[in-house]
Structure formats: structure tokens, C-alpha cells
């Protein structure tokens, strides 16, 4: 938790980002630097644009016809909205875990194997099997499913499904993992497991997590960003945000006075 972040180079850098849904201005003049090998939490009241900004980091907003954006998002110093960037390539570097567990209606094995397969990451069958097992192990799901890898992914419990989705995301070796309220559909025990997992994953990945739980943000993140009505109100070390927020709105929100 008290890892020093101050002078590590930012992995993701957003500069003056504005996002619109048709006429609606969902993100306003947002600039932020997100460090590598750490967990950043996005918090804020519902509808303030957390998901919208998160989705702009792997260009998932491209799939929404009405969505426009201006400004720049850089990954390792390169603009991800540059004309020569291939979205598919980008998404293999920036994985995403969604709010609702959404495994493919295929076997557990196929769920995890799908990404490596379409990106041609595995040289042969044993290689692929190894990748699947490793990903499942990293998502701490392997022990529970090792003897039913051919069973349907949708037949797992909600928490297991979410861990399967995490395994699926890390199977393609991303550098950044975006998680949009990954625990909102889970019970406290499953949540604790996912949080443990996030804590382990941060050794190797840049993780951004959107959450509605202050405790969760405090538990898992090193940095916290507070969003309000489309603007980034405050961003800093999680400890600072929760103990001595600079902005009145942040303080009101984390003390539960609105939101």
C-alpha cells in the first residue's frame, strides 16, 4: 500500500480529453497520468463518466455510434487514437473486465484459449494448454475448475465467472487491465478473492478499477481518482484522498454526504 509512486513513469497519460454522446458532454477536459505496476481506483457518483473514460483507454467507445471524443490518450507515450493504431492490437495490450461477468457460452478452456488463439500467441496445442492453465492459476480459479475445463463457462457461479473473465483478459498478456466494477455482482467472499487477485496482479500490470465501494478503493488501490459530473475533481495517492481530500466535493462524497 505504501509503495512509492511519485517518480515512476506514467503508463497511461490522458490529455484534455472530452467525450460526447451525441449532444451529451460526458467527460470534460480531463487530464490524468496513471502509473504502471499499481492499482488506480476511479470513484464517483453514478453517471459521472467513470465507465466512459475507462472505455476510452481501450477504445471500446468506438463501438458506440453516437460517441465522439477529442483530446489525446497516450499509452507508453504513443497516442492510441493515432490513425495508424490498430484497435484490435491495442485491445490485446489493454484488457478489460466488465461489470457483469460475461463469459462466452463456450467451455471454460475455450473462454481462456480464445484470446491467445486469435492473436496467434500459442505455437502449438500444449503451448496453448499451458497458457490456459497459467491464466487460470493467476486468476486463482484453476483449483476449482481443473477437472471440468470442458464444462460450460456460463455454468460457473458469479464469482467464478468473474475470475474466468479475468483469466480470459490476462491470457493475452496485456500490459493494462481495465476493470469496471468487477465485484458489483459478487458476495463479500468472492469480492475478497478478486481483491487478493488484483493485489497480486499489480506486480506485473497497470490496473485501473472502477468501484462504488470506498472500502474497496481504499483496500486495493494506490491511487484514487474522484469523478464528478464529467470532470476529474481530484486525483492522488489513495491515502491522501481518503484522509485529507483537498476538494469539498471529494470530502462530501467519501464521507457519504452525497452520491
Amino acid at each position: 500500500m505504501d509503495q512509492k509512486l511519485a517518480n515512476s513513469m506514467p503508463r497511461i497519460l490522458a490529455h484534455d480529453v472530452n467525450i460526447y454522446y451525441g449532444e451529451k458532454h460526458a467527460i470534460k477536459n480531463l487530464s490524468v497520468e496513471i502509473p504502471d505496476r499499481a492499482v488506480s481506483a476511479f470513484i464517483g457518483p453514478s453517471g459521472c463518466g467513470k465507465s466512459t473514460f475507462l472505455r476510452s483507454i481501450n477504445r471500446m467507445n468506438d463501438t458506440i455510434a453516437s460517441c465522439r471524443m477529442t483530446g489525446e490518450v497516450l499509452l507508453d507515450g504513443k497516442s492510441i487514437y493515432a490513425p495508424d493504431v490498430d484497435v484490435v492490437q491495442l485491445r490485446s495490450h489493454v484488457g478489460m473486465v466488465f461489470q457483469k461477468p460475461n463469459p462466452f457460452p463456450k467451455s471454460i478452456f475455450e473462454n481462456v484459449a480464445y484470446g491467445p488463439r486469435i492473436h496467434g500467441l500459442a505455437k502449438n496445442k500444449t503451448d496453448l494448454e499451458e497458457m490456459v492453465v497459467n491464466s487460470l492459476k493467476k486468476a486463482s480459479l484453476f483449483e476449482e475448475v481443473k477437472d471440468r475445463l470442458n464444462a460450460s463457462g456460463t455454468g460457473l457461479s458469479g464469482g467464478q465467472q468473474q475470475r474466468l473473465c479475468i483469466a480470459r483478459a490476462i491470457a493475452v498478456n496485456p500490459e493494462v487491465i481495465l476493470m469496471d466494477e468487477p465485484c458489483s455482482a459478487l458476495d463479500p467472499i468472492a469480492t475478497a478473492r478478486i481483491e487478493e487477485l488484483i493485489d497480486e496482479l499489480k506486480q506485473n500490470y497497470c490496473i485501473i478499477i472502477v468501484t462504488h465501494s470506498m472500502q474497496q478503493a481504499a483496500r486495493v488501490s494506490q491511487r484514487t481518482a474522484f469523478f464528478h459530473l464529467g470532470t476529474l475533481v481530484e486525483y492522488g495517492e489513495t491515502n491522501d484522498i481518503f484522509t485529507s481530500p483537498k476538494d469539498k466535493r471529494t470530502q462530501d462524497y467519501i464521507t457519504g454526504r452525497f452520491g
Binding site: 478489460m96 480464445y114 480470459r168
Partner: peptide
């Protein structure tokens, strides 16, 4: 087809064609 499935496919880096032919169309 639930949009979540399509998003899941795009999220792991499937192209639109792959998303359609591997996931949407079979379903």
C-alpha cells in the same frame, strides 16, 4: 445476442469480423 458477449469478444481483441463469426453468428 447479448451485447455483453460482443463486448467480451472485442475486449480480448477480436476484430469485428471475428466477433461476428466466432460469437454472434453461432449464437
Amino acid at each position: 445476442i447479448p451485447p455483453s458477449i460482443k463486448e467480451a469478444a472485442l475486449g480480448v481483441g477480436a476484430s469485428k469480423m471475428q466477433m461476428i463469426f466466432h460469437h454472434a453468428l453461432p449464437l
